[in-house]
């Protein structure tokens, strides 16, 4: 059995090494994004995969998130006699926090895991080697379209999440619990500012980058065999979700 201090040091070094490796991977992705030619078709296809194909899960989770916000918000606000503020409470919660975070988590679970698995399988079946052997840069061909698509699709999905969530809150607050429809929307208009929407948009942009970056990285450096791909997929979803939540805190602290 080795020295425990050595083991801690080894683990720490490994983590720092991985962070450096991930940073280099991101830098390389950025470089290949600006270098021509732009793989426009592949980017559009990935926007379809990440954006359009995630829309149903986004609609479903957004509706129920908005509804539960309406329900909890109403009962909490009623204690203070402030039911009229239900609209702003739902709107601000969704636009500032829940919309960007939930949309990013849903994309990580659906499209991020699929991307990690797809690239991981390409790695273990020598398809990435084949790309390199054909003088096709695998980062340019496989990673850049997914990352660009993530940065485009996640803000759009967040916007859908916000709108559907607000109507979910409306359904519960106004139609079921009796808050005035005019109050719900007019108070929201009074209290939600453009800076809130901009903040949410900036968050969703960065989350789109984080999710696609981490998931493509994990797939690109997947280990051997089915077990390696499985591990890479799990790590991709867990790490990207954790990073989204941690980064969300720092962005909230700076933006609002």
């Amino acid at each position: 059995m080795g020295n425990p201090l050595e083991a801690v040091g080894r683990t720490a070094l490994k983590q720092v090494q991985m962070m450096g490796h991930m940073a280099i991977f991101l830098g390389s992705t950025g470089l290949w994004t600006v270098l021509p030619p732009l793989k426009f078709r592949r980017i559009v296809s990935q926007i379809h995969f990440i954006g359009v194909k995630s829309s149903s899960i986004i609609l479903l989770t957004a509706a129920f998130s908005g509804m539960v916000l309406g329900l909890q918000g109403y009962y909490t606000l009623r204690k203070f006699g402030s039911e009229a503020l239900l609209g702003p409470a739902v709107g601000l919660s969704l636009i500032r926090e829940l919309g960007p975070v939930m949309a990013a988590l849903m994309v990580a679970a659906r499209a991020g895991s699929a991307s990690a698995a797809e690239i991981g399988i390409m790695r273990i079946t020598e398809q990435i080697d084949a790309l390199e052997a054909m003088a096709v840069n695998p980062v340019k061909y496989l990673v850049v379209p997914k990352v660009v698509a993530g940065v485009v699709a996640v803000p759009l999905l967040t916007a859908i999440f916000d709108v559907v969530g607000i109507f979910g809150g409306y359904l519960v607050g106004v139609k079921m619990l009796g808050v005035g429809a005019g109050t719900y929307f007019s108070e929201m208009r009074n209290m939600v500012e453009m800076s809130d929407i901009q903040g949410g948009f900036l968050k969703s942009l960065s989350f789109g980058l984080i999710v696609t970056w981490v998931c493509t990285y994990k797939g690109f450096y997947a280990g051997y065999g089915a077990e390696g791909v499985g591990k890479a997929t799990t790590e991709a979803v867990v790490l990207s979700s954790v990073l989204v939540l941690v980064w969300n805190y720092f962005m909230t602290a700076v933006l609002f």
Partner: peptide, 19 residues
Amino acid sequence: LDLVREKFGVLFQGCALFD
């Protein structure tokens, strides 16, 4: 390196066809 690689074709052990 790409210029030299363009002289090559490779048949990989597992074929490495894009599935």
